[in-house]
Amino acid sequence: MELLTALAVGALFGIAIFQILRRNVIRSVIGLILLGNAINLFLLSAGVYNGTVAAYTTLAGPYSDALPQALVLTAIVISMGALALTLALLIIVSARYKTSDLDDITGLRY
């Protein structure tokens, strides 16, 4: 499980950064989403070093730390808002410039 999580986090980070660096704005935004998910998964894994049993469900067992789960919840909500706002901005920008290529969005180059 540990190895699987580590590999998943690593793969997500790799894909996210590759996508962020693409010229297509939509791909960069997808990269941003993946980056958020990679970080959330990493945060979640930061809490399980004591065990994987959810806190307060049973009395037995080494509990997993509940705080990172709370952090992840907050981060997910924030990233959802961020995504909605990014896409809204993206719609306006791509409609105005008729392109999704970052190199063609040059209204402020002066």
């Binding site: 962020i20 960069s28 941003l32 980056l35 958020g36 970080i39 990493f42 945060l43 930061a46 809490g47 705080l67 990172p68 952090l71 981060a75 924030i78 961020a82 706002l85 990014t86 901005l89």
Partner: peptide, 19 residues
């Protein structure tokens, strides 16, 4: 917003690392 989201991602990741 794009660059700030990257900054927030950095901050969140730093939070995770420190935690």
């Amino acid at each position: 917003f794009f660059i700030s989201l990257l900054a927030s991602a950095c901050l969140l990741l730093a939070n995770g690392l420190l935690y």
